[in-house]
Write a protein that binds this DNA or RNA. Structure first.
Lengths: 144, 144
DNA sequence: ACCTGATAATCAGGTATACTTGATCAAGTG
DNA sequence: CACTTGATCAAGTATACCTGATTATCAGGT
């Protein structure tokens, strides 16, 4: 039901999906290409980890998944050298997931990649077009 | 790397992704809710099946997947009563995958659902806003 | 007409991703 | 002291694919 021939060459939802998969891939590709291997699911950690460390259970709730699943993501990121588990001084049951220097570099690479893509969108649509696109998407997200 | 706090509340790619998942879900939900159970992957068949029947291998190439994988999708759709396999009169090795009446109804439900969503976008953004959104997305897809 | 090699479909089993639930155990809380 | 919480071990589920092997049929050359 994604893109049927009839009535409209492309429906809006399908265009949104294509645009997202086109650009979304470029983010992961860019970061991996910069020397920071990772999986898309890892963004659930990067997106919300606190600079001062986050508990596994907090990350899990924030990503709306089970602590076990989040634990697996953290295992992988630890293996990749992006985070480390440190004991939480305020609760001996808990551990704080903290970014390593390399983890910070990885996030920096992510931000740089995203900025590159934003710049590219600016070039394609013009700054006004890009602003307008963002305005329309924000309106859609706020209301929908 | 989806939505980091810094620099910009939301990057454009992440907004595209959110908008797509918000609306994309509504398509499948709408069709399933109308009494036509299906999986998202089934759209690979619906999107390209010919009214006069399509060969499995043709569908597989069109969806850029192995014939075996496409065969499984067709198995499921056959089980659901949306398609049937008929011998291809022009080649006794081949079979033509054809929509049943119920399959046509399912596609009609999909089109109706999509139109409903398009109408909703019209209401949220205004017809001009919606047109502008589509124009910007088309430009992005053509160039990116 | 006959053999050869390609093509169509399918059977069987495997892989990757992204989760889930259940159970266990240490440590905190009323 | 009962109950809850934080993390983790272990195993399972769902989705969406894949490769390999087999069989029937077709199309081309001899």
């Amino acid at each position: 039901m994604a893109q049927d021939p009839p009535e409209q060459a492309q429906n809006t939802v399908s265009m949104l999906g294509q645009a997202y998969s086109l650009l979304g891939f470029q983010i992961v590709d860019g970061v991996v290409g910069a020397g920071y291997p990772q999986k898309p699911s890892h963004s659930a950690v990067f997106a919300q980890i606190s600079p001062r460390g986050s508990r596994l259970s907090t990350l899990a709730r924030g990503a709306n998944m089970s602590p076990q699943a989040m634990g697996e993501l953290v295992d992988e990121l630890e293996e990749l050298g992006y985070v480390e588990r440190r004991p939480d001084p305020s609760d001996r049951r808990a551990k704080l997931i903290m970014l390593t220097p390399r983890g910070h570099d990885c996030i920096a690479a992510g931000i740089a990649t995203i900025q590159g893509i934003e710049t590219r969108i600016d070039q394609i649509l013009g700054p006004e077009g890009h602003t307008e696109l963002r305005r329309l998407l924000a309106e859609l997200l706020a209301t929908g």
